[in-house]
């Protein structure tokens, strides 16, 4: 069973941007909001050289890594195009205007 953590509201995340969530003892999580207001959560590390994905340019349902411009699909965490690699994703849901992400046990399983 998944436990869910309340991380705030949609308005807390800039559109076409991201915020980061720190959970003690866990890898930092980037929570993205796309132009069509979908929310995705990924470990804040690029599969290439661990660039902080939260700082990239969000376009469509992808983010361009700020370090070497790899494009990462927000839904799957997978690198696009010719690049190969995958960032773990974290389940997200919206409930009563709050955004919830799956808690670290689930995250560990994903990683």
């Amino acid at each position: 069973m998944t436990d869910w953590i309340d991380i705030g509201t949609l308005a807390d995340i800039p559109q076409r941007g991201a915020r980061t969530v720190q959970i003690t003892g866990e890898k930092e999580i980037a929570v993205f909001r796309t132009s069509d207001d979908k929310v995705f959560a990924l470990v804040n590390e690029c599969p290439h050289k661990k660039g902080p994905l939260s700082q990239g340019i969000v376009h469509g349902h992808s983010v361009a890594c700020p370090l070497h411009n790899w494009n990462i699909a927000l839904k799957t965490g997978e690198a696009q195009g010719n690049d190969e690699g995958c960032t773990p994703t974290i389940a997200v849901k919206e409930e009563g205007g709050r955004i919830l992400i799956a808690r670290p046990t689930a995250l560990k399983a994903a990683a």
Binding site: V21, I23, T24, G25
Partner: peptide, 11 residues
């Protein structure tokens, strides 16, 4: 700023 930091003892 990060979103509110969350303290959960890692199991």
């Amino acid at each position: 700023q990060h979103l509110e930091p969350i303290a959960i003892a890692a199991e």
